[in-house]
């Protein structure tokens, strides 16, 4: 079938502001949006610019706004979109560098700000640290994050207040706060109790809907906020 692909384009070397460009491509129902973008780039217009790498939903390069929702272009099929017209735009809320490519620096800086690494105070034992299956299960979900930014850039609180640390950073803090091997949960809770921390979350659930890894992000944020309340009490 023929699909009409409407892509929001912007080349800072040529354009004053973003503009929509329409391409028609032949597609099958099992084609992913990434396949369509490749068809455009390789057969019609090599200037179309987007990031991609693994092409199966594990590297997080190709998050973009597709038919109004943040998704990975490699993980959404044409038949799932149930439309002959597909709109594609860059992730909202981050500066656009070119076409579908946004500047990720601020996003990664927020990730780094929550101490996203294990901090164990005891000396490393000769063998592995022991951890029960139940202890591990508590943070299993948040270890799935691929830092694609689909969640943070779908969050109205982030749009309204770009200094908000955002869902992705909280997910990565959660992953360590709830890891039984870590001794510095309190440091992260202090960081996230800041005015730009978890309290900016309004439980809108956009992040959870946007996550291509199916992480229960809003729940993770609520678990962190509860822990802050306990910590402060």
């Amino acid at each position: 079938m023929q699909i009409e692909l409407r892509i929001l384009r912007f080349d800072p070397e040529k354009d004053q502001k973003p503009h929509e460009q329409t391409y028609t491509v032949e597609a099958g129902p099992m084609d992913r949006v990434l396949d369509l973008l490749h068809k455009v780039k390789y057969e019609q217009d090599g200037t179309l610019t987007f990031r991609r790498s693994c092409a199966h939903g594990v590297c997080g390069s190709d998050a973009m706004l597709i038919n109004g929702r943040n998704r990975l272009a490699c993980k959404i099929r044409v038949d799932q979109l149930k439309a002959r017209r597909i709109t594609v735009a860059p992730l909202p809320g981050l500066p656009v560098m070119k076409d579908l490519v946004v500047d990720m620096e601020a996003f990664f800086a927020k990730f780094r700000s929550v101490q996203p690494y294990l901090q164990a105070d005891s000396l490393d034992p000769d063998r592995e640290r022991l951890q029960s299956q139940a202890e591990r299960a508590v943070f299993d979900d948040t270890t799935k994050c691929i830092l694609c930014a689909a969640c943070t850039t779908s969050c109205p609180s982030f749009w309204a207040q770009p200094s908000y640390v955002g869902p992705a950073a909280i997910v990565n803090a959660h992953r360590f706060i709830f890891d039984s091997r870590d001794d510095h949960a309190d440091d992260r809770l202090t960081i996230l109790a800041d005015r730009d921390g978890v309290w900016r979350c309004r439980t809108i659930f956009n992040c959870t809907d946007a996550c291509p890894r199916g992480i229960h992000i809003t729940q993770a944020i609520l678990e962190v906020s509860s822990r802050i309340v306990e910590h402060q009490a």
Binding site: D126, R127, E128, R129, L130, Q131, R136, F139, F176, R181
Partner: peptide, 19 residues
Amino acid sequence: VIELEHMGLPFNRTPDGKI
């Protein structure tokens, strides 16, 4: 592998808590 565990890698665990 042991060093990775010390760095925090969340390996699946046996019933007695080992990798």
